[in-house]
Design a protein around this nucleic acid. Sequence first.
RNA 1: GGAGAGCUGGCAGAGUGGUCGAAUGCGGCAGUCUUGAAAACUGUUGACUGUCAUAGGUCCGGGGGUUCGAAUCCCUCGCUCUCCGCCA
Length: 423
Amino acid sequence: MLQLNYIRENRDKVIERLGVKNFKEIGLVDEIIHLDEQRRKIQSESDAVSAEANSSAKKIGELMRQGKKEEAEAIKSQSSGYKEQVKHLTDELAIVEQDLNAKIVQLPNLPHTSVPVGVSADDNEVVLEHGTIPTLAEDAVSHWDLLTKYGIVDLELGVKVTGAGFPVYKGKGARLQRALINFFLDEAAKVGYEEVQVPIMVNEASAFATGQLPDKEGQMYHVTHDDLYLIPTAEVPVTNIYRDVIVKEEQFPIRHCAYTPCFRREAGSYGAHVRGLNRLHQFDKVETVQIVHPDQSYAALEEMNTYVQSLLQKLELPYRVLRLCGGDMSFTAALTYDLEVYSAAQKRWLEVSSVSNFETYQSNRLKVRFKNQEGKMQLAHTLNGSALALPRIVASLLENNQTEKGIRIPNVLIPYTGFEYID
RNA sequence: GGAGAGCUGGCAGAGUGGUCGAAUGCGGCAGUCUUGAAAACUGUUGACUGUCAUAGGUCCGGGGGUUCGAAUCCCUCGCUCUCCGCCA
């Protein structure tokens, strides 16, 4: 959520930046500013009445103590109207505030100045490409065929047990999952991310604070009986550790990594692009989260980007880095890098990581603050990045590394898998 | 699932319907002492809103009510803890 003060003081800039994100309802900005003026006006009226009520109540107390009962009664009779007035004003205030709040949450985060202008994924800027795209043998096949060929992931069985999009990993497939999770967690620990293990269901307050609610309600599984949500990413529980927390400046940078299963309903997406492991309802991911001093957030973003690249390099996967354009960015991000791996048999780039700086957009809802040098409260910046999501990594490993001897496991993973080939 | 207790500032923990944003202790910060540190002593120490700055307003789990006045009384919802039951 954007900060009201900022909108008030930077109206033109806000409108200009929202334009870069292709935000259509620009009129909201002026409506918000207007509502805010109204809000403050009513608030100060109500405050004035309360002040009078307080002082006369105090006076009555004073008189009662002195035993001047009649004088007290006299003031009492004058004081009975305050409550009605205050109630009237606070009701009015509540309506304005509700309206204001409903509108301000509709504004997406403002894009950073480096965000390219554009409307769709085609307008994303390719920042760099790394590695060589492998030339596969004539008989090379897509990963969904390899899953069956080697019996490592059984999609049909998942359908039986749960439904489409809930795969069953078997044998070396299951082992590979565990190897990747451990590899990612160990690498994260090496560069100073403290591992946490968090609940994979969250309450409504948490889902709201990181911005999944109200905008993305339909994308989460909702356990209605207990009113809990299955997490779509570890970002939600991990970032919410710091909800309503005033951190010490010297705690920065706060860095956490966490492995969790992730659940996404992803309603209404079908077709070749979602075959096999390309898109699932349940998948595994190691997530990195940072909470940093505002001055450091872009340095932290670059560092996260470089870190995720280092993982892909170690896995010997060809990848490219995209800087998302305004139109393709998420609602909450100020700047996002997507990392895509080339999946040689499908002949397409698969998004395996998304690294974002949210600046104060999340922290304003989360209320993660610190006391700055001048002793004033200030919102921290939050960032997160997948490091990494497993299914598409597995898909591209399978496709890119298919050989006559089987699927070749990258060297870094062999200590984790205990085997060199899936055969 | 059954029964009971409770929810107050960073933590612990007082609080009679008016002088309570709230005692006290711990912690934090600053200072004295010390070569330095510790100890001791002294002072200081909540958040939000609002204002150019003051002032003012709000907050004792959430919401509502009684009252001139509520942390304190009433209703309601939520949560936590303890005991029993069940259970990995």
